[in-house]
């Protein structure tokens, strides 16, 4: 890819992200997914675990933020393809010279970044309403973990999105994919509490490595080696996801043009 193309695509990604945010903030479901639902989860967890001390409160804040991140990616990014189809804009997006995966990358970027609001709202909830003193073990490493997690989540979302182009029924499976990842990725409690046979499943989920890096840098020991290893795993999965996504998009878009499924709802 030429450097000039990269600049053009990056400009397009930013425009797609801006327009996605402008468009979505007029939809009350989005506010539910990124603010209300993670806050409900945070309130429940903070009530249930209030005897465990301030460290655990921070764990819950980060964990509920991660639930917002995952739900946002799964529901908003996935549904956005079907929404485009319903509004009749999917054909217009496919027929532009910008590759469709670049457009979806911009949409995912907007969704993942806006879902960080859920982490901030959970933080405020724990600090203001539950009175916890929330301390971050390694703020700098935490910020680095957030940035790499964003990239890992966006890349993972790019693998999911092409499935929505041709399998309209996949929407019914979204709920089934939401809670298992909360548990298997260790968002709200460590996976050590789960049966041992689930551990390999957790290891192949990029959200698990994101949770591990974020928890380690916020409430863990701040072990740099562990954090760097989690970053490495996220980057490795991102490369694999981006490769898979490029193949999937090519195949799914061709199939959609064969099956005439770009317009039909």
């Amino acid at each position: 890819m030429k450097f000039k193309n990269l600049i053009v695509y990056w400009r397009t990604v930013l425009m797609v992200a801006e327009i996605t945010l402008r468009h979505q903030w007029n939809d009350s479901f989005i506010l539910f997914a990124i603010i209300v639902q993670p806050m409900i989860i945070a309130i429940l967890a903070l009530f249930m675990l209030r005897g465990l001390g301030g460290d655990y409160a921070m764990y819950v804040v980060v964990g509920s933020g991660l639930t917002g991140l995952w739900s946002s990616l799964l529901f908003i990014s996935g549904n956005s393809i079907n929404n485009e189809r319903r509004e009749g804009t999917l054909e217009s997006l496919v027929a532009v010279p910008t590759p469709f995966e670049v457009i979806v990358f911009g949409k995912n970027l907007a969704n993942v970044v806006q879902s960080l609001i859920s982490m901030s709202s959970s933080y405020l909830l724990a600090a203001l309403f539950f009175g916890y003193t929330l301390k971050m073990v390694s703020p700098l490493l935490f910020v680095g973990s957030v940035l790499i997690s964003i990239f890992a989540f966006i890349s993972f979302g790019l693998v999911i999105a092409p499935l929505f182009i041709i399998y309209r029924g996949i929407q019914q499976w979204q709920n089934a994919m939401e809670f298992p990842v909360y548990i298997l990725a260790g968002f709200l409690f460590p996976i050590a509490l789960l049966p041992a046979w689930t551990t390999p499943v957790s290891y192949v989920l990029p959200p698990y490595w994101a949770a591990r890096a974020l928890h380690e840098t916020s409430t863990g020991a701040g072990d740099v080696e562990k954090v760097i290893f989690a970053w490495g795993m996220m980057l490795l999965f991102s490369v694999i996801d981006l490769f898979l996504a490029s193949k999937l998009f090519k195949y799914m878009l061709y199939k959609a043009r064969v099956d005439a499924s770009l317009e039909t709802v």
Binding site: M15, H23, E87, T89, T98
Partner: peptide, 24 residues
């Protein structure tokens, strides 16, 4: 033909800015 194919919750200008970017 028809009314579909535009983002109704966006302004006309935002619709055009978006597609201008997608057409590079």
């Amino acid at each position: 033909g028809g009314e579909r194919g535009l983002y109704w919750r966006l302004s006309g200008v935002d619709n055009l800015r978006y597609f201008a970017s997608l057409y590079h």
